[in-house]
């Protein structure tokens, strides 16, 4: 019993001294993000690392802890570890999924730690101090509006969807309401799971099933790669263009080069993590207020503005 008490006491003292040390001269910012399991997340990891390196040089009084988790459970562990062993003063988190991450983030916020949530919102409102949001309905809307503009006389299109999630539903809803009444018909819709191989297979089957397809909303640049390969292999000439999304550098390059099959792209920038880390750091070191919601709109990339969105060094 007494041994346990001593251990507990020791731990508490360690934790206290750790927290005290952290508060003394350095401010610790924890960054918790999903691991680089697909292209977009890879880009996000790249921007997170780059931003942290830059900020650590600019602000010597800031210390960063970066953890990439492979699933929601692992992310909860990461956050618990950051609080317990590093005594973080601020947490920047891109939640894997909203529901399972809400309670742990809530308890971090209740302990007085600054919380910045990125991309996906939490299930309970008002937990976070700063919300840097991606605009999924807007992503769908901008894509839909472009389709309408590009096909004024209407036409038949097929749609590839992502992994069945709220994000995907919001995008498709936004897209569908934007093309409503324009004469554009969605003749088929399947999940390509934001994956090149899956979208290749789905597109091959769509090409077998439909003799006339005017355009494809691939809704993601990785899926657009698979779609283009399937169209090329089938030698079909009826498809006028493919609209992807997210802003992968290869696709932005093709827009920049005036490729007719890829006339445009819609951003959903993985660099939004950089915005969030940057704003949190500013809030920690200065008096500038940074609380509230900051929505990063989805922008249409066209040959005219493509150069601004082209990052040749990023892996995505």
């Amino acid at each position: 019993m007494s041994y346990m008490k001593t251990t507990l006491l020791g731990c508490t003292m360690l934790a206290l001294s750790g927290a005290a040390w952290a508060q003394d001269d350095t401010t610790v910012i924890g960054v918790s993000i999903p691991a680089a399991t697909h292209g977009w997340a890879g880009g996000m990891n790249f921007h997170a690392q780059e931003t942290i390196e830059r900020l650590e040089e600019t602000y010597p009084q800031l210390d960063f802890v970066l953890a990439a988790a492979s699933d929601a459970g692992a992310q909860v562990n990461d956050i618990e570890d950051m609080v317990a062993t590093r005594g973080i003063d601020a947490l920047v988190v891109l939640p894997f999924e909203s529901d399972p991450l809400t309670p742990p983030i809530q308890s971090v916020a209740e302990a007085g730690t600054w919380v910045t949530v990125v991309d996906r919102g939490l299930s309970v409102e008002g937990v976070e101090d700063l919300y840097v949001a991606g605009d999924n309905p807007g992503f769908g809307r901008v894509s839909g509006e472009y389709m309408v503009e590009k096909m004024p006389d209407g036409g038949d299109i097929v749609v590839l969807r992502g992994i069945p999630t709220t994000i995907d539903n919001e995008r498709v809803d936004g897209f569908e309401s934007a093309i409503e009444g324009s004469g554009i018909n969605i003749i088929d819709m399947e999940h390509g799971n934001w994956n090149r191989d899956d979208s290749f297979n789905v597109m091959q089957d769509f090409l077998q099933k439909h003799d006339q397809i005017d355009a494809v909303w691939a809704s993601d640049d990785d899926m657009a790669v698979g779609v283009l390969a399937a169209i090329e292999a089938a030698g079909r000439e009826d498809i006028q263009f493919v609209l992807g999304g997210a802003g992968m550098k290869e696709m932005v390059k093709r827009v920049m080069d005036g490729d007719e099959m890829i006339p445009a792209d819609v951003t959903y920038p993985p660099s939004m993590i950089a915005t969030a880390i940057e704003m949190t750091a500013v809030g920690m070191v200065s008096n500038a207020p940074v609380s509230g919601t900051f929505t990063i709109g989805s922008v249409l990339i066209t040959p005219e503005n493509a150069e601004q969105f082209y990052y040749p060094d990023s892996p995505f």
Binding site: A35, A36, D222, S314, F316
Partner: peptide, 11 residues
């Protein structure tokens, strides 16, 4: 493979 590709895609 994730490390080789830097989290992105090797083309």
């Amino acid at each position: 493979v994730t490390w080789l590709a830097d989290g992105g895609t090797l083309s």
